[in-house]
Each structure stands twice: as C-alpha cells, then as structure tokens.
Design a protein around this nucleic acid. Sequence first.
DNA 1: AATCTTCGACTGAACGCTCAGTCACTATGT
DNA 2: ACATAGTGACTGAGCGTTCAGTCGAAGATT
Lengths: 231, 231
Amino acid sequence: MDKLETAFKGSILTKSRGVTNEVPTQVKNQDLVTQRRGQIIEAAVPLFVANGFHKTTTRQIAKAAGFSVGSMYEYVNSKEDILYLVCLSIHDEVERGVTSALDHAESGLMALRQLIREFLMVCNRMAEQIQLMYQVTKSLPSQWKRRVLENEIGITQMIVDALKRIATTEKLEGISDGEFDLLANNITIIGHMWTFRRWYLSQQHSIEEYIRFQTEFVLAAFPVKMKQGKK
Amino acid sequence: MDKLETAFKGSILTKSRGVTNEVPTQVKNQDLVTQRRGQIIEAAVPLFVANGFHKTTTRQIAKAAGFSVGSMYEYVNSKEDILYLVCLSIHDEVERGVTSALDHAESGLMALRQLIREFLMVCNRMAEQIQLMYQVTKSLPSQWKRRVLENEIGITQMIVDALKRIATTEKLEGISDGEFDLLANNITIIGHMWTFRRWYLSQQHSIEEYIRFQTEFVLAAFPVKMKQGKK
DNA sequence: AATCTTCGACTGAACGCTCAGTCACTATGT
DNA sequence: ACATAGTGACTGAGCGTTCAGTCGAAGATT
C-alpha cells in the first residue's frame, strides 16, 4: 500500500522536483520516483553548496538521502542527472518565489518597488543556491545546460512582463522591447550581485539599505527612459 | 581597502606574472620560474575555460605547456597552485585593462561615459576568463580564495575612486561613500552580466547598443543633467 | 686539452588512491 | 510465486602526485 508519506510528498513535489521524462529511471512506481528524487535533491543541495559538485561523492549523497548507492542509481543514471535535478529544483523554487512576489502586485510604480524588493528578498534567501547555479552550469551535459540557461532567461522574462504591465497602467509609452529586456536583466543581476558580494557588501549595507538604494537606482532610469523616448 | 593599497597593487602585478613567494618552488633560477609559470598559465587558461578546472588534468596542462608532468611539479606544488596562478593572471589582465581605461580619462561626465564604455569593452574581451573566475573561486584553498575575492573588490574600488574624482570635478555633492560603492558595484556587474548572458543578449543587442543603454541607465542615477552629452 | 665531477632542470612510468557505476543477492509486498 | 525495490561489496578507469633516473652544460682536476 501507498504510505501516507508517499502520497503526501508526491503532492508537494512538482515535476521538476522528481519526475521528468527527460531523466529515465529503472523504477516503475512514479510516486516513489518522485519521493526518492525529492530526497536525493534535498540531500544533494547542501552538499553541493558546501563542497561543490565535483568534490561531493555519490556515496555522500546516498548516505545523506538515507539509502544506498545502488538504490540511488535506480532513480538516476549518473551523477550529472542529480546535478540536473538539483538545477531544476532550484530554478523551481526561485520561480515560485518570483511568482508569489508578482501575485501581491499592487499597481503603478509602487508595484515596481514591491517587485524589486521581493525579488531581492528571494535572492537573499536563495543566495547559496543561486551561486551554485553559476558555478555548476558549465558541468552539465550540453542539452541540459541549454535548458537550464533558458530557464534562467525565463525568470527574467517574468520580470519583463511585469514591467510591461506596470508601464501600460502608468501610461508610459515609447519603451522598446529591447529596453524592457535590458531593464529586467539589470534587476535580475542586481539580485544576483547581492548573492556574490554579500560577504563584502553586508559589511557596509544591510539588505534593507541595499534594496532601498537599488530601488531608487532602477526607478531613476525607469521614467527617464520613457520621457527620452528612442535612443 | 585603502587607497594606499590600490597604489600598492603594482607589486602584486609582477608577482602574478609567475613569481610569488606565496607559491614556493623547487627551482632555483627565478627567471626560469617566471618564464615557465607563464607557460603553465598560458596553457591552463584555455583548458580551464573549455573544460573547467576539475575536468582538466595535470597531464593536459603539462603537455600544452610543452613539458612533462614531473617538470611542471617543479614549478608548482599542486593543481590548485595552478588555479591560483591563473586567477592572479586573469585579475592582472582585467586590472591592466581598467587602468588603461582610466588613463585616457577625460573630465566630467564624459569621463564617466568613457569609463563605462571601456570597462564594458574589457569585460567583453575577457568574457570567458571572467566567467571562469566565477565558477572557480570556490575551489581555491581558503586563504587564496580570500585573496582572489579581495582582488575582485579592488577593481570595483578603482571604479569608486574614478567616480569620486568625477563627482568632485562636477561639483556634485551629497553622494555618500556607500552610494559611490554601490554605484561602482553596479557598473562592475553590468559588465559581468554581459559575460554571462552574452549568448542571449547579443541576439537582440550589439555590444554597442548594450553600452549605450547601460550608460544612460547609470547616468540616470547620477543626479544631474547629463543629457547634453548623449552620444 | 682531456677527463672527471657536480649541478639542476627535466622525464615519464609507476604508485596509491578515489570514486562513479554495476550486479548478484536479499527483502518486501501482493 | 512473482515482481519490484533495496543493498553494498566490487571493479576498473582515471586522477594527482612522486621519484629514480637521464642528460647536457659548466666548473674542477689532471
């Protein structure tokens, strides 16, 4: 019989946390695959964060996940599979954070402020994982590398859409698609910068100060760009 | 962190060309050490860029450098030593680029435009190496990791100094040290972003468009009329 | 000049070890 | 009885690192 646990976890975990037809498995029971892959990911992330992908051994992961090497390889075909699952999972969590940030959207420029704040808070919370993604992407098999990079762009695209929505409600015209795109990219990497340089930046600035400064920084450019019209 | 230290950088500069007392060697002849380490670095960089640090073998490096493994280990105590030398070398090249950019400085806001342009051009030229640094820093022994991270901040500090100089010649007051710092950090990572996302960004924007947009973006935050210099 | 000695850069086969991945076997549940 | 899930000792390739030995050049000795 299905354990309660299995059903419970299975409902929480999205496809990226476990079942992907891209990553085939020996085990038939899909719920079990989902659950075990969830365990693998949960075990692997902190190990990768602490020791990096290459210095982490499959045994460490298996042990931390609570089963044997052999068993782990029933759910995964290679160590790189694990890396890919981890990347999907991190992306997923970031995306969820951004989505929920966009959900409390107010309107107008206040929404922009809020967007920036919440995005930076997500980055602050996920700092280690975001750094991991930067270090690790190159080690992925190339078809998956591509997908992970595109996922990354996907998040920026969510910001683009939000910006466009804000611009229309604010009746701001004359911003080209390209400008929206670059603006969203800037916001994204302002978040990522905090994850890379927090060790240094936080000596002088709290996350709150950082948010305040960067909000003004972005807002200074936002209306200005439109009044200027085309470059 | 001091301006003194920035001026002092010259000594590190020569060290990173090969000879560092931090990295001891078996070989007596210092000139030879410098030369051979240069060869090692030149051989290692493209390999690291193409395959990553962990997937590159010491044999590959030795072969590409033109001598045997054993000989290489006369000039270096471990594979991580090589990584450290590579990091110093890359930092050095970036710093040289930035320095020369600051040398043709004009004055006023035009100088700021030029600073941004030249820095972004340096990033564009050094894209692969900059990416490598991001991926690799974590793999360094911790005392060297620290030093490499501080070097990175050092470059941002050069931009801070330049900004301050510009602000004083422009009689711009009321900008706090913290704001200069964050502004310089933003410029830095705007450059780094191009290295990470060039594969995507360059589909829509040439480097020139990117520079133009980012220049306006940064200048918008510099609280005065900069519109006259629009190029 | 001819021979011997010392020196130090250079070599690459060999060593010891790690670790991803396998497989013959056991346990469990239906 | 059968299918499915789980185990962990085992394998072998690949790695960083070492070290006994080579070689040519530069003194030193005859």
